[in-house]
Design a binder for these strands. Structure first.
Lengths: 229, 229
DNA sequence: TTTGCTTAGTATAGAATTTAGACAAAGCTA
DNA sequence: TAGCTTTGTCTAAATTCTATACTAAGCAAA
């Protein structure tokens, strides 16, 4: 009667690692090194290890470090997926996280096991990983309509036209330049980097910006959203 | 190496059952009938039972039925809480759900074990239940700024002034009547109940509305949010 | 060196949306 | 029947958003 069948539940953590490549959202997949599905591309993930992890968020950080060799600037719990059918080993829960990284942080030459796959191209995946990825993409696109989330897909510094392009590729629609700049200004999370301009192109140089110090780990929300629809 | 220490993880589900009482949000607590914390007020919850539950959502439905004796019109996964310290029995995860019910669905005389407690009055609770409740309240208030969520706190039928009052008590600010009605109209999820008016008060009777048939289990989102701030 | 091209960044006017206030509608009470 | 109250709608003013135009500034080619 005391601690019954819940001992039969397998407890794992999976991470949806997202970044922009060639203007579209990609997810990082790894070839699994053991059964089930050994050799198959899947989300980085694994068992929660109580002796190593203070909580599941720690476990997600550990997965990213061990399997993709990086510390993500943005990591958020997505949802928990559960049931009998999703894992052939038995009734399981997977606490899913998603991470956003700028492209330069994912050094694919140093991590030859990692494969970047466009999220919008349907593909068979083991477990319910396709569903988990779909939920993460949905969450990112939704949050991009009213928050500063996409900033985490940019590097340390970026120009406003670059940032606008990132928003536009996530939202799948073009944004009004004046409105976009007004809203970034209202968010009040960016600061120009004095004297640093994007040069080398045949036009007026664009100002480089960076996140203000206090906003490294904290989202900012717009009052009225960014897109028109 | 195969299925390691994750067997040592305790897997539970907790439900934050919310309703409006006297114009403010209340959470339903139950007196625990076994250790740890036997006799203490806590969230309805319990172990996931793989032989009974298809998934954790089923488990949450079961908790509501067994412990509070009701079927909630709205149930959504909130987040998963985890770690060594939150449960004296050991490293645990709790997949938390939240439910919204109209006041008349919670028959406290038939369920004498259930206690309704205002969410804004701080109170010591076992486990990390205070944190879980805070997250649920935060989620409900946040979603109320841009969605039809508060409708689930009303009964089968309600007038627009009643619904506006529900929004206002959740958001903690008064809303513009014209804007509120325009946005409810844009959501296009309510229909007037022909001929049914709220009578018995010393003023012009208000029209009763209900959710349109297709929207019983589905949220609708505003383009631009409801509140002004 | 100069001309032309391209994109950055800003100003402005017109369009669209939101809000505050006014007011008629309609039932209850006295 | 008069007066009170809240519902539901209309309208004008305030605010916000968008399209367009225009200057800024660097590169490339003549």
């Amino acid at each position: 009667m005391n601690v019954p069948d819940s001992r039969n539940v397998i407890c794992t953590v999976d991470v949806v690692l997202l970044c922009l490549k060639a203007g579209s959202l990609h997810v990082a997949l790894l070839r699994r090194d053991h059964n089930p599905y050994a050799g198959v591309l899947a989300l980085p993930g694994g068992f929660v290890r109580p002796e190593l992890d203070q909580n599941t968020s720690d476990a997600a950080v550990r997965m990213l470090r061990e399997k993709a060799g990086l510390e993500s600037p943005y990591l958020e719990q997505l949802a928990t997926f559960s049931g009998q059918a999703r894992d052939p080993r038995g009734w399981s829960v997977s606490i899913a996280y998603y991470a956003l990284v700028p492209p330069d942080l994912l050094d694919l030459t140093a991590q030859p096991d990692v494969t970047l796959v466009p999220v919008d191209v349907p593909r068979a995946l083991p477990f319910d990983h396709r569903e988990i990825i779909a939920a993460a993409v949905e969450r990112v696109r939704s949050k991009s309509t009213y928050s500063s989330l996409p900033v985490y897909l940019c590097g340390e510094r970026f120009t406003l036209p670059q940032l606008q392009t990132v928003y536009e590729s996530l939202l799948g629609e073009s944004l009004n330049k004046v409105s976009f700049r007004r809203k970034m200004d209202e968010l009040d999370i960016l600061e120009p980097i004095q004297g640093e301009m994007e040069t080398g192109r045949a036009n007026r140089p664009a100002q480089y910006y960076r996140l203000k110090a206090g906003y490294r780990d904290q989202l900012s929300l717009c009052n009225r959203g960014l897109s028109s629809s």
